[in-house]
Each structure stands twice: as C-alpha cells, then as structure tokens.
Design a protein around this nucleic acid. Sequence first.
DNA 1: ACAGAAGCTTA
DNA 2: GTAAGCTTCTGTT
Length: 985
Amino acid sequence: MKKGDHLFLIDGSGYIFRAYHALPPLTRKSDGLPVGAVSGFCNMLWKLMLDARNTDVGIVPTHFAVIFDYSSKTFRNDLYPEYKANRSAPPEDLIPQFGLIRQATRAFNLPCIEIEGYEADDLIATYARLACEAGGDTTIISSDKDLMQLVGDTVGMYDPMKDRQIGIPEVIEKWGVPPEKMVDLQALTGDSVDNVPGVPGIGPKTAAQLLEQFGDLDGLLARASEIKQDKRRESIIANADKARISRQLVTLKNDVPVAEGLDDFVLHAPDGPKLIGFLKTMEFTSLTRRVAEATGTEAGDVQAVAVTVERADAAHGPDVGAGTPGAIRPAGAGEDGAADRAPGTEKPISGDTPSLLAALRLESAATRKIDISAYHCIRDVATLKAWVAEATEAGLAAFDVRATSADPMQAELIGLSIATAPGRAAYIPFAHKSGNGDLLGGGAVENQIQLREALAVLKPLLEDKSVLKIAQNLKYDLVIMSRYGIDAAPFDDTMLISYVLDAGTPHGHGMDQLAEKWLGHTPLQLKDVTGSGKSSVGFDQVAIDRATAHAAEDADVTLRLWLVLKPRLAAKGLVSVYERLERPLVPVLARMEQRGISVDRQILSRLSGELAQGAARLEEEIYQLIGERINIGSPKQLGDILFGRMGLPGGSKTKTGQWSTSAQLLEDLAAEGHELPRKIVDWRQLTKLKSTYTDALPGFIHPDTRRVHTSYALAATTTGRLSSSDPNLQNIPVRTAEGRKIRTAFIADKGSRLVSADYSQIELRVLAHVAEIPQLRQAFADGADIHAITASEMFNVPVEGMPSEVRRRAKAINFGIIYGISAFGLANQLSIPREEASNYIKKYFERFPGIRDYIEETKAYAREHGFVETIFGRRIHYPDIRSSNPSIRAFNERASINARLQGTAADIIRRAMVRMDEALEKAKLSARMLLQVHDELIFETVEAEVEATIPVVRHVMENAAMPAVSMSVPLHVDARAANNWDEAH
DNA sequence: ACAGAAGCTTA
DNA sequence: GTAAGCTTCTGTT
C-alpha cells in the first residue's frame, strides 16, 4: 500500500445484525433457508464494488477487506467478565446466515478476516492504523459508534444503508465530542447492549458537556468535586472505577498481531462465474442478473454451487453472541430505501418484481450519461414522419413543449421536443426567429417546418390511444396544445409520479430537482439559453442548436425519469393513488383553467376608488396622531414610532429584533383604548384589499377570453391539496363585509348563474371517521351542531341555551385537534393562560379518549415509517419526525396529524372533481366546473339548469369517497346559486 | 434584479 | 396549533 491508496474495511459482523433487523423478516430461499441478511450483504457489497469502478463517485478503493468477529470470548472478558454477558443468542433464522455471509465474501473474491480473541472492531483499528502509516486512506463501512473513535484525517466511515459519510464533523454533530474523545464519552455513558457499565445517570449529552468542561475523562475524575449538580457529582465520584474499566473496554486495540497484511487486500475485479454461482444458489434473481450484465457473464451457463449451512441447533459458530449494538429497526432504515435495496426485499424465486425493475432502471439511469450534443433537430416533414413512426412503434414517447410564455393561456408554440429512448431525442422548431434585435424581431429562421404542417403530422401521434405520452408537468403542455386543437392522451406525468412517491421529502418535483436526485445530472437551464434579466431574449430568438440542446435534453431527461420513477409506484403500492387521484385530475384542471371565470372590471375599479379614499382619509388621521408623515406600510418605521418615540406599551420583538406590529398586537392596544392602532389596522385592511385584489385582479383578465384564468398546482402542497396562483383565487376575502365586496366582482355570464357547493366540516367528519369517535359520529349522523355537542360533552351543559362563549371555546378546540393541538396554540387562539388551555385539552381527551389514541397512534406511525397515509393511501413524508430537536419534532408531529385529515379531505374533493364532468354530461347538464377552493367547487351554468345541477353536484361530492372507502360519517354539501360569488357562497 | 422578513388573505 | 400565495419593505447583489 502506498500514498493515495484507499482501503475499504467492512464491519461484516455489524452489517449482519443491522441487515437482519433492517430488512423485512422471513426472506427465504425456496427450500426455506432464511437469507435476508445474506441478500442485504451481497447487495451492499455489489453496490460498493460498482461504485469502486465508477470514477465519478470520488472515493475509489484500491484495497478491500471484510472483517468479522470470531467468537464472543475476547480479551475484554478477562478485563471484565460481565462484558457482553447479557447478550442473548442470536435469532434462530440468523444463525445459518453467519457462515453464508463468509462464503458470500469469498464468492466476491474479497478477503474474509477474523482472528480468535479479537473483535472485528480491533482488527479494523489495526488495519486502519497500518494503512495510515503506509500513507493511505481508510473508509470503514459501518455506522457503529464504537468505531467512531477511529475517525480522523485519513480515516472516515460510510453507512451504506443510509448512504451517509461519517467524518469528524458528523461525529461531533452526533455526539458533541470529536472522535478522539469518543472513548471517554463511551466510558461515561456505558453501553447497556454490550454491558459496559459507564456512570449511572450520565447520558451522551451530559457526558459531552462534562468533557467539554474538564477536557477529558482523567481531568473530570480528578476534579469531580467541582461539579455543581449534587447527584451528578456523587455518581461520578462513586463510579470512577467503573468509568475507568469502561474506558478500557471501549478502547479499540490497534496492534492486533494480524496474519494478513494490507497487500493481501488489493482489490481484484470480481470473478463473474464464481460470484454468479453463489448468487444463483441463494436465488437472488435480480442481483444475479445485474452481476451477469455487469460482468458480461451468461448467467444461464453457470451452475449453482454447493454451500455449507450451519443449522440453527448446531453448536454456535463464530459470531454468535457478538454483534453490533443498536441495530436499527426496520422502520428506522427508512422505507425510502426499500426499492433502492429491492433485491434485499425480494420475494424468493421471483421474476421481474416491480422493486427489481425499479432498481434496475435506477442503476442504468445513473450510469448512462447524458450527451446534449447528440440530439437531433428535425427540419423537414420526412424526418418528422420518421420520428413519429419510431414513437408509434415504441408505444411511448416523452414530449416537451417550447412556447413564448410560462402562462399556457398566453403562450404561442415555438417548438416541441420528443424522446423515444434514453439518449435518443430531437427538437422540432416551428417558429424561431433570427434574433437581430430590431423592433420587428427579425425574420423567420429558414428550414423550419411550418407550425400547421408540423402539428398535422404530430396530432395523430399525440392523440394515438396506443402511444403513451410522457411529460413533466403535463397540464402546461395540455392547455397549450388544447388551444391548438390537440387533445393529447393517454399520458403519464413524471412530476405527479414523483409527488405521489415523495410528497414531503426535501426534494421538490421540478425537472431540475428530479434530474439531480435520480440521474445525478443538471440539465441546461432556460436561463442558460435565453440569458437572464434585461439582456434576456424570448425562446423564439434562441439559436436553433442551443434550443435543440435545451428542449431535447428536457424530453430525454423526462423519459429517463419516467423509466426510473414509474416502476417505483408499483413497488410501493402507490399506483392507485396516482391513477385515481392525480393523473385523471390533469385534464380536469386543464379545462377549468381554460374556462376561467368572469370578473367585472367596473366593480373592481369602483371598489378600488372607494378603498383609495378610505385609506387616504385614514392616512391623514394617522399622520395627525403621530405628527409626521412616515411610511405606514413599513413595519420598521411604524414600530419605531409606536413603541420607540410614542412609547406605547406591550411591544414585543420579532426574531430579527424589530418591534412587532402584528394585527393581533395592535388590536389588543386598540382594545385598551388607544386610538392610533385601530386606525393602522383599518388602513392595512383597506390597502391590502386594494393592492392584492381590486388593483391586481384586472391585470389577470385575459385579452381574448376576457376572463380570469388561474393556474392550479397539483404538486405544490405536501398534503395533497391543490394550490392556486397567478392569480390565487383560493384566498379571495370572505371574512369581513368590506372584503366580501371583492367577491361580488366574480360573476356569471349573462343568462347564467354561479353555483357554489361546499363540504360542511369535512375535516372534522374525516376525524370522526378515522378516529372512530362515537359521539361525533352520532352528532354528524343527526345533523347536529358539532361544536355545541363538543361543548356539551366537555362542560356538561345542555346545547339548548348554551352561551356563545362556551361554544366558541369548543370550536377552537375542534379546530385545534385538526391542526395537531398544543396548549400553546390553543392559549394563543383563545387568549387564555397556557394552563387553562392545557386543562381544556385534558378534559377533551377524557371525554374523547379515541382522539387521544388517534393522535398517539399517528405520531407513533409517523415516527416508525417516516410518513403518514390518508385513507386513500396517499403518503406524506415527515423525514424530520425523529429529529432530536424537540420543537422540530413537535412541529412534524402536529403536521403529520393534520396531514392525515387535510390530505384525506383533499383526496375526497379530488375524487369528486374527477367524476364531476362525466356525471354532468350523463345528466345532460351544461354546467362547467370553474374553481376549487379546498372544500368548495364553483360552477357556472345556464339559469334554466340550476335546479337540476345542484342535486347532481351534491350527489357526486357527498359520495366521492365511495366505493374505495365507505365512511362511517355522512358527508354533507351545501350548495347555492346566484349571480355572483358572494351571494352564491 | 433578487431574497427574506413581515404582514395578511383563504380553507 | 395545519396547509397555501401575494404585496410591500428592506437590504444585498
């Protein structure tokens, strides 16, 4: 070994236990031999060896060895007979796997190292030292904290199950001490799994703090009398000996007399047939196939080999009783790894399982490079027809539209790209201009197929029922193409597939993020080809070769993403969520966006004038009161005046140290009789309504349709709700009379009416259903006042003649439950002390123990799986639910409680929307769905059909959960018709 | 020209 | 206490 070489040391024994516990139990070979841990081990080894040949990865091992424990009896037992004495025998189905894993190691052509009397950790310490002395680097494949003491400048760790590097910073982050102090830390904390005593009452946090204060263990023991906390001081003084012996136990021995030297560990290429022989015997079908592919071996030619199996009832062989403490739980491994490690979870004697397919696709996607210079540009009809034929033959193609605007209602088609296989993609320019920058925009570029001609060739393909069209954020393309008379179908949308798979994970679902995550690739950005800011040009001005690279790459990336992501749906049981709740909603929303809604410019303009007058009047009065003309809209200036110069009481600070001027705070001051805060609150309301609504909305009226076309995002929220933007029509004011006037500007066409239909208390009904609360179910079945019933149960007062304040409090609690209640939040909401809020919650749980159970069960589920599910199977991930930061953890808990309810409600209205158009058509009604506001749908219909439309709409909405779920609580929908949205609501 | 904070609108 | 989007101000690029 020499400088620059890199040694990989696998903690084989640790891995066995971790894999056994992390992987699903009962993975067995056809003859019943349990092989789950062997499978996990082989997959891990194979992945490491692939990485080893992939120079992109950065760390390339030159030396490689797998280290095992030999037996449970080591020199440590001489030091401390109780060491690992409480270790029970390994699980029965793990025993035969110890030997198999050693055989697997040899099948991989890797050295298999174990020495009697020493633990694997000691051998690892020894080899890491030898490598360091030879000038090489070491990576230890393990996440065992016992090994962290070895981490240093030349020694790192890697956790293959979590794909995580562990270096000095990670050790400090996790344990609060640098690696060289890990020994002292472990000496203090001890280890119950290994029966290392430590000092009772000292955990990792305290230990780190003490070591910080006293330097090291010896310093601490010498000056223990200085510790302030009585209990802690006494425990450390009384147990100093235990700490010292613990330190000896956890200190790894780095001078074990080893037989093999580092030169015996030089990494060789795997021997295909030898390895495949073993894998076949194990019936690891997918890994066999992948290894065969990678090594160029014909798997069919290789015979399975004999393996030696130690029976569970035989004498315990090596490894028994020794393992890695803190083996992670199945859930702790993260379900997200499931398909990545698909072969580890595969069923015995399986063919192409979805997980296998997903894993294969991922592997090939990550290895096949993207070459943006290899794309074609289609400039004549004959070539275009050839590509259409190719796509038809393939039965699928990815598309991406290039247009003049991000708003699909305004966008003019410029070109279209198409991909038929990874790396095989083309761009068809129709409307590029030579960008000379003169005002006329230059002339059309030569050698382009005319738009009409190109669409005539493409339309049959786009509408061909036997060709799957794949796009990223398909709704955009669909709206544009629909305006050009094309109704593309059938289709898949990679953005939505990602959303179904990974809602709530840190990565978003945009193409760039998906390409980065799954393909390890950064596509050309639009900015890269159009420029940005002032010097940017329209896409139609981009040179055709640059446009080709950009557009065709997006189609290529989309196709590759589809190959990777689509099989994952089946692997995770999420196909029906995608096919029933996501994909069919795309054309529904595309139609709603295209229809738009009429907004009366005159009404808004009149309102804007009134608001301007009112605001101006208040402005003058405010200036009078404060004596100077500040910018009232500046919270900074306002705060300085109110709480600084004028000295009003009760000012609190925001997190940036500014005075808070929130409405709540100003309201409180107003209630104390101050004149100014009231005026500021009023001024804010008027200016808010003016700027956000009356002034902004007219700008969204489309020049041709003269209606407002919002844009719905299907994949923007974590819970499954839609979001609306440009403009946001889901936050049009309704609470105040002033604000509601905005709604009168949303009108139906002449001779038509707006119909508004909204679910009543849908989230509370979902709660009553999922948490199985008898009183709430009964109340909803009776059509009773749910908040009054809650109050009656809690405070033992009759519903008749109930004071409104009592009902108000119950209502706040009901909403609080939906939001994942906390005493802090409820106290804020009701302006009561935290203790009082806490008592309310306690009382509530006494009356409705099912809700407490539901909340606890949700938290436990989220913690175990890292996600929660709606009743229709939509998954929402909470990766931070296990955070050690209590406030982050609590936030994730509340969010996960809310997500089941909000997400289920969102699923229900999605189901209604998917069915609505067909139901209306079947009833021969011309009503058109225009808007969705979370629990409300707004339709436009001719006056004569209003009466017939309402029952159809109600029926679809009230039965939307069926037949997938038969709810134990009825859904109730209120519906009304009027000339404008204010009166219809 | 853009990003973050503060504030306000909705379900 | 949950989930969003938009506007203004303010400071940085």
